[in-house]
Amino acid sequence: MDVFMKGLSKAKEGVVAAAEKTKQGVAEAAGKTKEGVLYVGSKTKEGVVHGVATVAEKTKEQVTNVGGAVVTGVTAVAQKTVEGAGSIAAATGFVKKDQLGKNEEGAPQEGILEDMPVDPDNEAYEMPSEEGYQDYEPEA
Results as ranks from 00 to 15, higher is better:
134 Q>W: 14
32 K>P: 01
6 K>D: 06
52 V>Q: 01
91 A>I: 12
91 A>N: 14
129 S>N: 12
50 H>M: 14
132 G>H: 05
89 A>P: 06
121 D>G: 08
106 G>F: 03
87 S>K: 06
12 K>N: 01
69 A>R: 15
79 Q>W: 15
124 A>R: 08
52 V>Y: 14
41 G>V: 04
109 Q>F: 03
8 L>N: 00
84 G>C: 00
139 E>C: 11
5 M>K: 07
114 E>A: 11
16 V>N: 10
11 A>Y: 13
87 S>V: 03
9 S>F: 15
88 I>Q: 05
33 T>W: 15
119 D>M: 04
79 Q>R: 03
15 V>E: 00
123 E>G: 12
48 V>S: 01
42 S>E: 08
104 E>C: 00
103 N>W: 13
91 A>R: 02
99 Q>S: 15
64 T>Q: 04
96 K>G: 03
16 V>H: 11
77 V>E: 01
76 A>W: 02
109 Q>T: 14
62 Q>R: 07
24 Q>P: 15
46 E>C: 09
57 E>T: 08
38 L>V: 15
137 E>H: 05
128 P>T: 14
62 Q>F: 12
65 N>V: 15
42 S>L: 05
58 K>M: 14
69 A>L: 02
128 P>V: 04
78 A>G: 06
3 V>L: 10
82 V>Y: 04
83 E>F: 11
59 T>E: 01
71 V>G: 03
128 P>W: 02
52 V>W: 07
36 G>K: 06
108 P>T: 09
99 Q>W: 12
84 G>F: 04
132 G>M: 15
44 T>E: 01
126 E>D: 10
20 E>G: 04
34 K>F: 12
16 V>M: 12
133 Y>G: 15
12 K>M: 05
38 L>G: 08
139 E>K: 11
30 A>S: 02
115 D>S: 11
31 G>S: 14
4 F>W: 08
90 A>V: 12
29 A>Y: 14
60 K>R: 10
77 V>A: 09
55 V>Q: 00
57 E>S: 02
48 V>C: 08
127 M>G: 05
92 T>F: 07
65 N>Q: 05
37 V>S: 01
83 E>W: 03
122 N>R: 13
89 A>Y: 11
19 A>L: 14
31 G>K: 14
47 G>I: 07
112 I>C: 12
132 G>Q: 12
18 A>C: 13
38 L>Y: 09
107 A>N: 11
66 V>R: 01
85 A>I: 13
41 G>P: 00
74 V>D: 02
41 G>K: 08
91 A>D: 08
44 T>F: 05
27 A>M: 09
50 H>T: 12
58 K>R: 01
101 G>S: 14
64 T>E: 03
120 P>S: 09
73 G>R: 08
29 A>K: 05
23 K>D: 00
67 G>F: 13
19 A>K: 03
81 T>P: 01
5 M>F: 08
84 G>I: 12
13 E>A: 08
34 K>R: 12
108 P>G: 13
73 G>N: 09
57 E>P: 03
11 A>H: 01
126 E>P: 08
110 E>L: 01
126 E>A: 05
104 E>G: 10
84 G>N: 15
94 F>H: 05
118 V>F: 05
49 V>M: 14
66 V>H: 05
70 V>D: 03
38 L>F: 09
72 T>F: 00
40 V>F: 12
23 K>P: 01
99 Q>R: 00
114 E>C: 14
117 P>V: 14
9 S>R: 12
72 T>N: 15
72 T>H: 01
107 A>Y: 14
123 E>Y: 04
68 G>D: 00
119 D>Q: 13
67 G>E: 02
86 G>C: 08
10 K>C: 05
92 T>K: 08
139 E>M: 10
122 N>P: 07
130 E>V: 02
44 T>R: 02
37 V>R: 01
36 G>L: 02
124 A>T: 15
70 V>P: 02
116 M>S: 11
80 K>N: 15
94 F>M: 10
129 S>D: 04
140 A>I: 05
35 E>W: 08
90 A>Y: 14
41 G>F: 12
88 I>T: 05
130 E>G: 05
122 N>D: 12
2 D>P: 01
116 M>E: 10
88 I>E: 04
32 K>R: 08
57 E>I: 03
98 D>V: 12
117 P>D: 07
95 V>S: 06
112 I>E: 08
27 A>Y: 14
123 E>H: 03
135 D>H: 15
122 N>Q: 14
29 A>W: 10
48 V>M: 08
139 E>N: 07
66 V>M: 14
84 G>R: 09
27 A>I: 10
11 A>C: 00
10 K>Y: 08
115 D>I: 04
105 E>D: 14
66 V>G: 02
132 G>E: 14
40 V>Y: 14
98 D>S: 08
133 Y>K: 04
11 A>R: 01
60 K>L: 11
127 M>N: 14
136 Y>A: 05
101 G>Y: 11
4 F>A: 01
36 G>N: 12
45 K>R: 09
133 Y>D: 11
130 E>W: 09
71 V>F: 15
43 K>M: 04
87 S>N: 01
31 G>W: 12
107 A>S: 04
51 G>A: 06
84 G>Y: 06
9 S>G: 03
31 G>L: 13
105 E>W: 12
78 A>V: 06
14 G>C: 13
7 G>Q: 10
4 F>G: 00
7 G>E: 05
131 E>K: 06
103 N>E: 06
132 G>F: 14
26 V>G: 01
26 V>D: 00
69 A>E: 15
75 T>S: 06
66 V>P: 02
72 T>Q: 02
94 F>P: 07
52 V>H: 02
137 E>F: 04
79 Q>C: 12
22 T>M: 10
72 T>R: 08
117 P>G: 06
22 T>Y: 11
80 K>M: 12
140 A>S: 12
138 P>R: 07
30 A>C: 09
78 A>N: 04
102 K>Q: 11
97 K>R: 05
55 V>W: 14
122 N>I: 07
13 E>G: 06
28 E>D: 11
48 V>Q: 01
70 V>G: 00
26 V>L: 07
46 E>H: 09
61 E>R: 02
85 A>Q: 05
66 V>W: 13
97 K>H: 08
33 T>M: 11
30 A>L: 14
136 Y>N: 06
1 M>H: 00
131 E>A: 12
64 T>N: 07
113 L>S: 12
99 Q>M: 12
106 G>V: 08
126 E>W: 13
14 G>K: 14
110 E>H: 04
47 G>D: 03
8 L>I: 05
5 M>Y: 01
39 Y>C: 05
42 S>A: 12
42 S>K: 10
105 E>P: 14
128 P>K: 09
78 A>P: 01
36 G>M: 04
14 G>D: 14
8 L>Y: 06
48 V>N: 01
138 P>T: 06
21 K>D: 01
93 G>H: 06
119 D>W: 14
25 G>S: 12
106 G>D: 03
14 G>E: 04
46 E>S: 05
88 I>C: 05
136 Y>D: 02
11 A>Q: 00
15 V>M: 11
11 A>I: 14
138 P>Q: 12
36 G>R: 12
75 T>L: 13
101 G>E: 00
105 E>H: 09
46 E>T: 08
102 K>W: 11
27 A>F: 11
44 T>V: 08
112 I>Q: 11
80 K>S: 01
79 Q>D: 07
104 E>R: 09
59 T>G: 05
92 T>Q: 11
63 V>S: 02
73 G>M: 04
6 K>A: 08
128 P>E: 13
102 K>P: 13
38 L>H: 05
106 G>W: 13
140 A>T: 14
43 K>Q: 06
90 A>K: 09
7 G>P: 01
20 E>N: 10
8 L>T: 00
71 V>D: 02
51 G>C: 14
137 E>C: 10
21 K>Q: 05
43 K>V: 15
87 S>E: 01
67 G>P: 04
95 V>N: 13
71 V>T: 00
106 G>L: 12
139 E>Q: 10
81 T>I: 08
103 N>G: 09
56 A>K: 09
107 A>T: 12
89 A>L: 12
8 L>M: 02
34 K>W: 02
89 A>I: 13
123 E>L: 09
24 Q>A: 02
136 Y>Q: 08
40 V>A: 08
40 V>W: 00
100 L>K: 02
1 M>S: 00
103 N>T: 09
108 P>K: 08
45 K>P: 00
124 A>N: 13
3 V>I: 04
119 D>T: 15
115 D>F: 06
20 E>D: 03
47 G>N: 14
48 V>P: 09
86 G>T: 07
